[in-house]
Design a protein around this nucleic acid. Structure first.
Lengths: 245, 245
DNA sequence: CATCTCGCTTAACCTGGGTGAACGCTAGCA
DNA sequence: TGCTAGCGTTCACCCAGGTTAAGCGAGATG
């Protein structure tokens, strides 16, 4: 593990100087919350659970998924290092999906009423809204992908999305990033079979678009991959992000 | 058109007595906003537009959609009468999808800064958050449907979802509702072709699950349709809704 | 050092749903 | 009262991607 990045909750907020004193107090309390740990490939939250606390994943990869009665499983979102994640669900009565780790993670727990405060704090609330709207846009784009793009486009699009999000989180150097997903994960996220994901990975490799070995993914031709996936990054609304050089 | 329901923004909020005076003032101003009209099958907002106002659809059906460069089109959500709809997008810089009417609609426009106030008003903000989380849950469920359910299940699931939402909005009587979607709409929403939607509609009819003619849809066997679609309504988080008898 | 497991890879075969095209019904509309 | 347009319906054909199964390499475990 690398050194710990600052709490992602903070990274998503405006400059502290724009916050009221009350808001700064909230954040101080959050910064003081103890860091918890969970190993790779475990459930953090299960469908049907009732929650009294909220989670913020500080480090590591996770995913949301739903399982049908007969066992079919669909990953509906990837939660990347630095993403806010389970801040909101406890505002509803009951989990309607599960959340599992991909890698080991570090996270904090916040009591529910603290989140309710954050959500309606002026500057913090607005920032959380903006974050939520981007998450929503990503979810819409998955719908478009699975509904309209063919297998190759879908895989290319998914890799582009993850890459752009990782880059915005400062986790890309020289077009390379750590990439802990398995082909089976990608299959469950894109609605195809692991076998077919493999075929498409081969195809992207043979076209010279990506290098992927072990846990390292490198974009050999990012514009080409974007074209192959009909990927247009505007839905990520990253333009204003200062971390993009 | 039937008589006008109250502004859906109000329907989604807690009892007015729980609101502060400031919040009640906000709502009064909203109630006073003039009602605008737009005909069926028109774009209300287009991908790429920059917005300075927000919209609340008071009456009628609409949908969100995205179009790929080569014309493939995916409907990503249906906005039903009474749903909040475009309250939030203007918090982001630019539309990343389009919004089109299905039927003629009535709507109001709110200036952007008014929405920013609403969103962080204590009681109103919390209610809007809850609404947003349900919308998000629906979007996740679409991902699951398109990713994992087969054509028949997908169609059945979509009909169940729309039916439950319409029922919560008070638009169902005796298991019947007005249903202005075409089979092509359903095709664009479920990621299949109109031809195949038609085959699946025939199948649901021949199993005695639905009656659908003109603009009327009737559930002849709702439990059966739920089973056919592997539909579990918990993700709609309707249990607490007082309008469900 | 042997064994086990997990993830990746390849191959042969099959099917759900796409494609393209034609036809018919109903509802405006001139 | 005939024309046009949109929507639903049906058919014949075909392919993208699913299915099943087997082999392989690398890291984990005893």
């Amino acid at each position: 593990m690398q050194d710990l990045p600052p709490n992602p909750l903070l990274a998503h907020l405006p400059d502290p100087s724009e916050l009221s004193e009350t808001e700064r107090d909230y954040l101080d309390m959050i910064a003081a919350a103890p860091l918890l740990t969970l190993g790779a490939r475990r459930d953090l939250l299960r469908d049907g659970e009732t929650l009294r606390t909220c989670h913020v994943i500080v480090q590591g990869w996770a995913c949301r998924y739903k399982t049908l009665e007969d066992g079919r499983r669909q990953i509906t979102a990837f939660v990347l290092p630095g993403d806010l994640c389970d801040l909101y669900p406890p505002l509803l009565a009951e989990m309607d999906h599960s959340l599992a780790t991909i890698t080991a993670i570090r996270y904090i727990e916040l009591p529910r009423d603290r989140v309710e405060q954050l959500v309606v704090a002026p500057a913090i609330g607005r920032a959380l809204w903006r974050d939520m709207l981007v998450t929503m846009a990503i979810q819409r784009e998955w719908t478009v992908s699975i509904g309209q793009r063919d297998a190759l486009e879908r895989l290319a699009h998914m890799l582009c999305e993850l890459f752009f999000r990782l880059r915005a989180a400062g986790l890309v150097r020289d077009d390379r990033c750590e990439f802990p997903l398995t082909q089976t994960d990608l299959a469950e996220a894109t609605g195809m079979t692991p076998v077919h994901v493999n075929r498409m990975v081969q195809e992207l490799r043979s076209r010279g678009l990506i290098y992927w070995k072990g846990r390292v993914l490198e974009m050999l031709d990012l514009p080409g991959l974007c074209r192959a996936g009909l990927f247009n990054p505007t839905y990520l609304h990253q333009s204003a992000d200062p971390r993009l050089a």
